[in-house]
Design a protein around this nucleic acid. Structure first.
Length: 486
DNA sequence: TGAAATGTTGGGGCG
DNA sequence: ACGCCCCAACATTTC
């Protein structure tokens, strides 16, 4: 008869394809599932408001799912090493298992936890659950990390393919006496003022919600992914990002579902197959983000390309606030920022547009954008957020060159041609005709009067002119180039 | 996973 | 019939 095993849950809030849980079950003794709330151990990046809301829901679901197997989730607060050691003593545990995380602060913390628990005689094991390829398994010819996506992706495809996902355990042996648990509400994850109504409506956190979204995606959406993924006016993306971030579904499960769809395609090079390929590549961007964060742990706050540390960013709190609130005067930008605020999520195409606008048009530091996204996104993920903002800032690996500047009017016209997206999130412009919707300040007064829109009072005039702002950004870039290492 | 500026080509109107 | 010009459409270069 073996002693009990603690399973330390952290961003792997699922029962299916959960290697740490499976290994604990296989040991044969009682299994004690535990979650620790200790934001101080997340370094510079404790969970933001939207993430905490999701975390609350996800923990609630996980506890309910565990209870359906006769088990439950123990919640504790406090430093991981001490809290786990105490819980192990209380439950007579001999082993502590968890699935690995890859953020710099997590890695450091987990190393300390492992060392400390082992010194107390506990069997500590960690498992691969969050990625298809762990960051250190993909290497260039010379043994270093990749900095460009395409060769990274080729190397992934040449490496060991992702394994088959494992089913959830059908029962979990409980300890004779459950240790005490903090109440979920006591963790204070839910907002004091209920601003989460829009988020609640848009999402169904938890393993069941994730599985449901995946089947809908594979059955109804992925076939048109190559084209529709860029259209914020359509439901053309997977919307799996928050589920993936919190580990409510494993990337292996998604990989297998999309692979199966792909392998059934006749002809294998047709449009549907291309769409599935495209989605697998997006999963690989997530892998790439984790690869980069692992190998370049300073990049959440500092540019990967060091010369960008001297970039002449503006200090402009007023423009930053307008951007955050969705009041820049550029409809596609404002629609995106308001979608983010209302639902905790923003369409990826629009993320690129608003990021380009912050960094290039307003010349505000990409770190400000990263901070805001961190606080407002339900899928805020350090690896993905860092990759995205360094890309937008032109200072990252495989970044958009700095001179690649999005035109918010053209992007709006191209990807939201009928204005469905803008009208949804910027309702004060709903009556503006398509022709002027993405540049309402250029509409003749007669037209605006006709649709009942008062410029400046109903909807702000742009604080910057895009073509002037573009010139300004290019000049700032020239300045940087002209003095490489001053 | 840009956009603007600049260059090239070819059809058609017209003297 | 011919050359000239205009300009749309597309390609290439540049930022």
């Amino acid at each position: 008869m073996s002693g009990s095993t603690l399973v330390w849950f952290r961003h792997d809030f699922r029962l299916a394809d959960n290697p740490a849980l499976a290994a604990a079950t296989a040991r044969g003794g009682p299994v004690v599932p535990v979650f620790l709330w200790e934001p101080a151990e997340e370094g510079d990046w404790p969970a933001g408001g939207a993430s905490k809301w999701w975390l609350h829901q996800s923990l609630e679901r996980l506890d309910a799912d565990l209870r359906a197997l006769g088990s439950r989730l123990i919640l504790r607060q406090g430093p991981a090493a001490e809290t786990l050691a105490a819980l192990a003593r209380e439950t007579g545990a001999e082993a502590v298992y968890w699935n690995r995380r890859y953020e710099p602060a997590s890695i450091e913390r987990d190393q300390g936890v492992k060392q400390s628990l082992r010194s107390e005689g506990l069997d500590c094991r960690s498992f691969s659950a969050a990625l298809l390829w762990e960051p250190w398994t993909i290497r260039t010819q010379s043994g270093g990390p990749y900095k460009v996506f395409s060769p990274f992706w080729r190397a992934c495809q040449a490496a060991e393919p992702p394994g088959e996902p494992e089913p959830a355990p059908t029962s979990l042996p409980s300890p004779a006496i459950w240790p005490c648990s903090v109440q979920l509400a006591a963790l204070g994850l839910e907002p004091a003022i209920d601003w989460a109504a829009g988020i609640r409506e848009a999402w169904r956190p938890g393993e069941a919600g994730a599985a449901e979204r995946l089947s809908r995606f594979v059955e109804e959406i992925v076939d048109d992914y190559a084209e529709s993924r860029d259209r914020p006016d359509r439901d053309g993306t997977s919307r799996l990002s928050p589920h993936l971030h919190f580990g409510e579904i494993s990337p292996r499960t998604i990989w297998r579902a999309v692979r199966e769809r792909l392998d059934r395609q006749e002809p294998p090079r047709g449009a549907v197959a291309k769409s599935a390929q495209k989605y697998l590549a997006e999963l690989a961007w997530r892998e790439f983000g984790h690869h980069l964060l692992y190998h370049f742990p300073h990049t959440p706050l500092e540019p990967l390309r060091p010369e960008f540390a001297r970039f002449p960013w503006a200090d402009d709190p007023e423009n930053l606030r307008r951007w955050q609130k969705g009041r820049t005067g550029y409809p596609i930008v404002d629609a995106g920022m308001r979608e983010l605020w209302a639902t905790g999520w923003m369409h990826n195409r629009v993320r690129m547009i608003v990021a380009s606008f912050l960094v290039k048009d307003l010349l505000l530091p990409w770190q400000e954008g990263a901070r805001w996204f961190w606080d407002t996104l339900v899928d805020a993920d350090l690896a993905n957020n860092t990759l995205g903002w360094q890309w937008a800032g032109g200072c990252g690996a495989d970044a958009a060159p700095y001179f690649r500047i999005f035109n918010p009017i053209l992007q709006g016209e191209r990807f939201d041609p009928r204005g469905v997206y803008v009208r949804r999130w910027v309702p004060e412009l709903a009556a503006v005709p398509d022709r002027w919707l993405h540049k309402p300040w250029e509409a003749p007064m007669k037209v605006l009067r006709g649709c009942g829109v008062n410029p400046a009072t109903d909807y702000p005039l742009p604080s910057v002119n895009h073509s002037e702002a573009r010139q300004r950004a290019l000049e700032a870039w020239d300045e940087l180039k002209s003095q490489p290492d001053a």
